[in-house]
Computed example of a mutant assay.
Amino acid sequence: MSHQTVSVNSTAPTLANQLTSGWNPVCHITYNRDTWVKLLQPPSDYAFEEAKLLCQESPVAWVAWVPDYGEVVLERSDFYC
């Protein structure tokens, strides 16, 4: 097994400095109505791989429209921006 060394820009703050300054490394994506999202798994072989968010059904689910398929309910784990 070989290891690869990656050089880091010396002007970038270190992770320790970022954490102590209040920077949170967790990604918090805010989804909005009319946002197009990429589906991890299209609902059928003939449906598009993207969906348009219509309205939020719950904190973890959205009603969406998939071209060539129709309306579906997607959990946040079913798509990404």
Rank of each mutant, 00 (worst) to 15 (best):
M1D: 12
M1N: 12
S2T: 12
S2Q: 10
S2D: 15
H3W: 15
H3N: 13
Q4E: 14
T5H: 12
T5W: 13
V6H: 14
S7T: 15
S7N: 12
V8W: 15
N9M: 14
N9Y: 14
S10V: 11
S10G: 12
S10C: 07
A12V: 05
P13T: 00
L15R: 05
L15I: 08
L15P: 03
N17P: 00
N17T: 06
Q18R: 08
Q18S: 02
Q18C: 06
Q18A: 01
L19S: 03
L19W: 02
L19G: 03
S21L: 05
S21Y: 01
G22K: 00
G22S: 04
G22E: 03
W23P: 00
W23Y: 12
P25E: 05
P25Y: 09
V26G: 01
C27V: 13
C27M: 10
H28I: 12
T30V: 13
T30H: 13
T30E: 14
T30C: 10
Y31K: 03
Y31F: 11
Y31Q: 01
N32A: 12
N32Y: 08
R33N: 08
R33T: 05
R33F: 06
D34C: 08
D34Y: 08
D34E: 07
T35M: 12
T35V: 05
T35A: 13
T35D: 11
T35N: 11
W36F: 08
W36A: 09
V37W: 02
V37H: 02
L39V: 04
L40R: 11
L40Q: 10
L40G: 07
Q41N: 06
Q41V: 08
Q41P: 00
P42F: 04
P42W: 03
S44E: 09
S44G: 07
D45V: 06
D45A: 15
Y46P: 05
Y46Q: 11
Y46W: 13
A47R: 05
A47L: 07
F48R: 12
E49A: 11
E49K: 10
E49T: 09
E50P: 04
A51S: 04
A51C: 02
K52Q: 14
K52P: 07
K52R: 15
L53E: 02
L53M: 05
L54S: 06
L54V: 15
L54F: 04
C55H: 13
C55I: 10
C55A: 11
Q56D: 03
E57S: 14
P59W: 12
P59E: 10
P59D: 12
P59Q: 07
V60F: 07
V60Y: 00
V60P: 00
A61T: 08
A61V: 07
W62G: 00
W62Q: 01
A64E: 02
A64R: 02
A64Q: 02
A64V: 05
W65E: 10
V66F: 04
P67Y: 04
Y69I: 03
Y69M: 03
G70M: 05
G70Y: 05
G70V: 05
G70K: 02
E71R: 10
E71A: 08
V72G: 04
V72C: 08
V72T: 09
V73I: 13
V73C: 12
L74M: 02
L74W: 03
E75S: 11
R76G: 13
R76M: 14
R76F: 07
R76T: 11
S77W: 06
D78P: 01
D78W: 03
D78K: 04
F79R: 01
F79D: 02
Y80R: 11
Y80N: 08
C81G: 11
C81M: 08
C81E: 11
